[in-house]
């Protein structure tokens, strides 16, 4: 993957697209939609199995948001948090089950193992936070917060926004990318020296897959928690 030739690209409307990311992303989007669609059939006052699961997920993401964002403002970000969490979770786990490479080029893997994708979502979160801050406090109060605690703090405040954006995106990328990298290395090791390495590698691969599954869930949770922290910080006048 580190080799540039392993990235299949095509151009459309003057923009460069990565076929790998497009295909994997579409799969993740479709899985999330089908999951939610399947769970939200037959909604009743007394919830069935699917509805219970869906309501549990909604309560979970709402709980994360409400833990950070005070008051009723959390409900405005409920849908964003819910979709973000589900998409990141599915994206993180996707590469653990399916990795397709054709002719030395990856076509399906975890979308979140590409920093462009994770930075897209962290950028979305930072922009949403800025937008929410301006919408609640107004331009004047919002930008005055950059001058707190004193005027010379301004470069640090601006830099902080930038680092928030980078760390939020790169944290999830690092964990998922390294997880997949290790899976690949273990896989290569399995077929390197015949049956002996295969027997040794299978349990290691299984353990690492389980651990990656756990890490993927944790990273989706962390991403949403940090998103809500960044949003809540912009909502209050310091």
């Amino acid at each position: 993957m580190g080799d540039p030739s392993s990235v299949p690209t095509f151009k459309f409307l003057g923009l460069t697209f990565n076929a790998d990311n497009v295909i994997s992303g579409l799969i993740a989007f479709i899985i999330v939609f089908l999951l939610v669609f399947a769970l939200s059939r037959k909604l009743t006052m007394k919830p069935g199995k699917g509805q219970n699961v869906l309501e549990w997920i909604i309560d979970f993401t709402n709980g994360i948001l409400k833990g950070q964002i005070p008051g009723n403002e959390a409900s405005a970000f409920g849908l964003y948090g819910f979709t973000l969490f589900l998409f990141l979770f599915v994206s993180n786990e996707l590469g653990l089950f399916i990795q397709i490479a054709v002719g030395g080029k990856d076509y399906v893997k975890s979308p979140t193992s590409d920093p462009m994708i994770t930075l897209t979502f962290s950028l979305a979160t930072i922009m949403l936070a800025q937008f929410a801050g301006v919408a609640k406090l107004g331009y004047k109060q919002h930008f005055r917060n950059y001058l707190k605690p004193f005027v010379f703090w301004l470069p640090i405040s601006i830099f902080e926004e930038f680092t928030n954006f980078l760390t939020l995106g790169l944290r999830i990328f690092g964990v998922i990318y390294s997880g997949e990298m290790l899976l690949k290395i273990i896989g290569q090791m399995a077929f390197s020296h015949g049956i002996a390495t295969l027997i040794v590698s299978v349990p290691i691969e299984m353990i690492w897959q389980g651990f990656s599954l756990f890490l993927g869930a944790i990273q989706a949770y962390v991403f949403l928690t940090l998103s809500s922290v960044y949003i809540s910080r912009k909502l209050e006048a310091e």
Partner: peptide, 14 residues
């Protein structure tokens, strides 16, 4: 250059 298409694709899809 930068694969900006991916970002746009993901943003719109999201």
């Amino acid at each position: 250059g930068l694969a900006l298409g991916d970002m746009l694709f993901y943003a719109i899809c999201f």
